[in-house]
Design a protein around this nucleic acid. Structure first.
Length: 879
RNA sequence: GCCGAGAUGGUGGAAUUGGUAGACACGUCGGACUUAAAAUCCGAUUGCCUUUAAAAGCAGUGCGGGUUCGAGUCCCGCUCUCGGUACCA
């Protein structure tokens, strides 16, 4: 196919120019651009830090071996258009890119081939960078980060130490350094103090059961387990007690929930975070055990149904099970508990449709009516939520009802459902019945009364529970940050800050040891220190690096601190963050948590990292299916770029539809925008000279670049005064593109550019002043072509559009002299009248009534009223 | 099940606060240019119906109701699709 315009020469040329001129550098407080830098020329009388900043961030990619697919650049294109737009609007733009380069695939490749993950990672980064650069994004590459570089992960380790050396003070509701901790009077010995402190650190060691994935050979965080399978790869996960590092994210649950109100994220995304945090209000209620000197606390959100509690269920792992179980039930209980512990997560959730459980032989006493209720154990009660024990109210809880029916346990209705609904199995709010002093109360009032009563009798209290669990932070991997921790006499100790970064050892074999120890344990010399201490052999999860990378961009080369304080204060927080919805809970929750800790400790100045967040939609294959290698519908950007160029690619990515929407790729769609760029080219460039050029290039391809400068401007381009019509078309485009960019409606902004070109192509005289402004509008979208044409139009070539002031529209140019004004009868369009902007309301009514086409719809009918909507239409209502 | 988002021509989509439904683009059809093709340019393109034609009419934004002078947009009740989540007491 004939090339629409020489993008293959224009694009590398301008990418090279931007690169060599450092066009897109951002300047930290105290830094100065060179005098001839376009930034300095634009902002002559101001220091960079006096300018309004705009921090626009992409979720950095994991550089996989497969290279970029068309989904990656969707978000990057959107942010690049906005970055270029904001730069032209005069903002000081920070727009960086980097690599989330620790991770499983490089390590698995290492296990197979022995190639060091570092080498694999470097190769992949090189390829990703080449691909991203070929799209002409305006990143400040001087701030590039890579999570696997010691200069970076030094600070990931440092942040871990901040967590390790902090605790959550419930009084101040903040993270504080551990030395602010006060010990209770009974904690006296150093040993006791040490233990007390270790139990309260934000980074602590736990021996609780964890999600172990045998296939991946590592543990996983709760968030990484989906339906009992690993999120990555879909391998089975089992629960297994192991010594692991945990981060105390639960302490921040309320703040993570509350501060969602302060940020500009989509409702659906906030809702996902809320659901994950899972706050629920209710009561803890104490049940005495009959004949045993023990009490069991249950958590319930429906204390108003306490009179309907007919049995109690403990999770199989509950600590009191042994103490309660009667002799004759002992074997059944042990058997059930063993069976439950052997079940994988998958079996306990997905596959376990039928409820199971056994009676312990013990009875609890309902505090409200002294009734004895049987105590069962069943695995539908989770040990990890609430107290691991429930009071069962089968009449008003689906799960309890199912269980009660299966095991023939009593059911007592205590809530009267509203008219038309059955009370048995009713879980909504209603009127309390058969409930002593609660009778006749509505659910919310009954809740209040019963909790007051429980608190007074010291049999319970108001309680808030969260679904969120602490974050399991260690992995049994090689290719991750080693913990800056050593073990001495069974106790953990932090390395000194001066000992960072702690580098991973070199290994020949990246597999776990035969004893099942993590791969780092193979490095005997590294693990065993001279004084008998040993290093922690777990590594941090991939999230560690991605939790804070947006901070490192602020000052990527700093050796003294993760980022200069002034720079942090100036740039934070992120004004716009764009990325995939798959990180809605994992990355975004973890990053918010770390940021809050850093905020409390005084290292950052904002309580939230990402002010506005937008999720881009998924791009489907041409067949409307999800892109995948197995379907063979993956679109490779390299191929698209070779045929249509980066500008067409960028334009198409945004022209497809709204950013947040899922939408299918279409090669014909790319051709459409490519043709549009060709029309732009021909609007400016003399076709004869381009044909000559093409001919000359076929005979002497080596001279192509040189001959490019011989191209002539189109003969219609001149210095004439623009007509009113031309100004109207230009300013309508300015208005629409400006509004749409502000609202991130890229697709309609591009359509406005197309409308302009369609009009302008008809002009026999194309005023230079109008055509120059159009290139400014085009620049954020198709920067290579815009720069090139602007250089041809300008008397001072070599000047970039990047810092050109964004054009302003003039409302007065948009006013039409005479317009066709629609006339409706009873809401149906029946005709038009011609009016001018100063036609009065009365005149419009008159004209409408007199209009010939209208007459036949209103004559012989009774006129009810006439509605004139200014600038819109007139509607005549008749009967 | 629950929570969230959505459904508009042959296709992707537009209509920003209730005000001319289908912008822009793809595809298709027709024409110009060409020996021919490609490329480019011009025109048509929601359906139905009447007409030689011009020109009109009717229906129409997943389905059924409602509010309004006027509904793709607001309200009530459904259907389907997508995303999240699931014994969380």
């Amino acid at each position: 196919m004939r090339r629409q315009y020489p993008f293959h020469l224009i694009e590398p040329k301008w990418q090279g120019y931007w690169n060599s001129q450092e066009t897109f550098r951002a300047f930290n407080p105290g830094e100065q651009p060179a005098e001839d830098h376009p930034f300095a020329i634009r902002h002559k009388n101001k220091e960079p830090e006096e300018l309004e900043k705009y921090y626009i961030l992409d979720m950095f990619p994991y550089p996989s071996g497969a290279g970029l697919h068309v989904g990656h650049p969707e978000g990057y294109t959107a942010t690049d258009m906005l970055a270029r737009y904001q730069r032209m609007k005069g903002k000081h733009v920070l727009h960086p890119m980097g690599w989330d380069a620790f991770g499983l695939p490089a390590e698995q490749y290492a296990i197979k081939t022995g190639q060091h993950p570092r080498q694999t990672t470097e190769e992949n980064v090189t390829n990703f960078k080449r691909q991203i650069k070929s799209l002409g994004f305006s990143y400040d590459w001087s701030r590039e980060v890579n999570t696997t570089e010691p200069g970076y992960f030094k600070w990931s380790q440092w942040i871990f130490l901040q967590l390790y050396n902090s605790w959550f003070n419930p009084v101040t509701n903040k993270a504080e350094p551990v030395d602010t901790m006060e010990f209770p009077d009974e904690i006296v010995s150093d040993e006791a103090k040490r233990e007390y402190l270790d139990e309260r650190r934000l980074a602590y060691v736990s021996n609780a059961p964890v999600n172990w994935c045998p296939e991946l050979g590592t543990v996983l965080a709760n968030e990484e387990v989906v339906d009992g399978k690993s999120e990555v790869g879909g391998h089975p996960v089992v629960r297994k007690p192991m010594r692991q590092w945990m981060l105390r994210i639960t302490a921040f649950a309320q703040r993570l929930l509350d501060d969602l109100e302060t940020i500009d994220w989509s409702d659906s995304l906030k809702e996902m975070q809320r659901n994950w945090i899972g706050r629920s209000e209710g009561a803890g209620v104490l049940f005495r055990v009959d004949g045993v000197d023990e009490e069991i606390e249950v958590f319930t959100t429906r204390p108003d149904t306490l009179f309907g509690a007919t049995y109690m269920v403990l999770s199989p792992e509950h600590e009191l099970v042994d103490a309660l179980t009667s002799k004759d039930q002992l074997s059944a209980v042990i058997e059930y508990r063993d069976a439950a512990s052997r079940k994988s997560d998958l079996e306990r959730t997905e596959l376990a449709k039928e409820k199971t459980g056994v009676f312990t032989g013990a009875y609890a006493v309902n505090p409200v009516n002294q009734e004895k209720v049987p105590i069962w154990i069943a695995d539908y009660v989770l040990s990890t939520y609430g107290t691991g024990a429930i009071m069962a109210v089968p009449a008003h809880d689906e799960r309890d009802l199912e269980f009660a029916q299966k095991f023939d346990l009593p059911v007592r209705v205590v809530v009267q459902a509203p008219e038309g609904e059955q009370s048995l199995g009713y879980t909504g709010a209603g009127e309390s019945i058969e409930s002593g002093f609660l009778n006749g109360l509505g659910t919310s009032e009954a809740k209040k009364r019963i909790v007051d009563w429980l608190e007074e009798k010291r049999k319970g209290k108001r309680t808030i529970n969260f679904k969120l669990r602490d974050w399991l932070f260690s992995r049994q991997r090689y290719w991750g940050e080693p913990f800056p921790i050593i073990w001495r006499h069974g106790r953990h100790e932090a390395l000194q800050e001066s000992e960072l970064p702690l580098l991973p050892p070199e290994l020949d074999d990246y597999k776990p040891t035969v004893e099942g120890e993590p791969p780092l344990a193979r490095a005997v010399d590294w693990v065993n220190l001279a004084d008998g201490a040993t290093r922690e052999t777990n590594t941090m999860p991939q999230w560690a690096g991605s939790c804070w990378y947006y901070l490192r961009y602020l000052d990527a080369q700093n050796d003294e601190y993760f980022a200069d304080k002034e720079a942090e204060k100036y740039w934070m927080n992120v004004d716009l963050y764009v990325g995939g919805a798959e990180h809605a809970v994992l990355h975004l929750l973890y990053a918010r948590f770390w940021h809050k800790v850093m905020y409390d400790l005084g290292h950052v100045s904002t309580s939230e990292p990402f002010q506005k967040l937008v999720n881009q939609g998924i791009i489907l294959g041409e067949d409307g299916q999800k892109m995948s290698k197995s379907r063979g519908n993956v679109v490779n950007p390299d191929v698209v770029l070779a045929e249509y160029g980066a500008d067409a690619f960028r334009l198409y990515e945004m022209f497809m539809g709204p950013l947040e929407m899922m939408k299918p790729w279409s090669t014909q769609g790319v051709e459409g925008v490519y043709r549009f760029l060709g029309r732009v080219w021909r609007l400016y460039i003399d076709e004869g000279s381009y044909k000559d050029y093409e001919q000359a290039v076929t005979t002497d391809p080596g001279q192509a670049e040189l001959m490019l400068s011989d191209l002539k401007l189109h003969s219609a381009v001149n210095d004439s005064e623009p007509t009113a019509e031309q100004l109207k078309i230009l300013h309508a485009a300015i208005k629409k593109v400006t509004d749409d960019l502000d609202g991130m409606r890229f697709n309609t902004a591009i359509s406005a550019l197309m409308v302009f070109v369609n009009e302008a192509s008809k002009w026999e005289s194309r005023p230079r002043s109008v055509l120059s402004v159009f290139l400014e509008l085009l620049n954020p979208f198709a920067p290579h072509l815009a720069e090139d044409l602007a250089a041809r139009m300008s008397e001072r070539p070599g000047n970039t559009l990047a810092y050109q002031p964004w054009p302003k529209y003039e409302e007065s140019y948009l006013v039409e002299e005479a317009v066709e004004f629609p006339v409706q009868v009873n809401g149906k369009l029946r005709g038009h009248i011609t009016i001018t902007p100063d036609t009065s309301k009365e005149e419009i009514e008159n004209l409408a009534l007199k209009c010939e086409k209208i007459q036949k719809f209103i004559s012989k009918k009774e006129l009810k009223k006439i509605i004139v909507v200014p600038n819109r239409l007139v509607n005549i209502a008749v009967k």
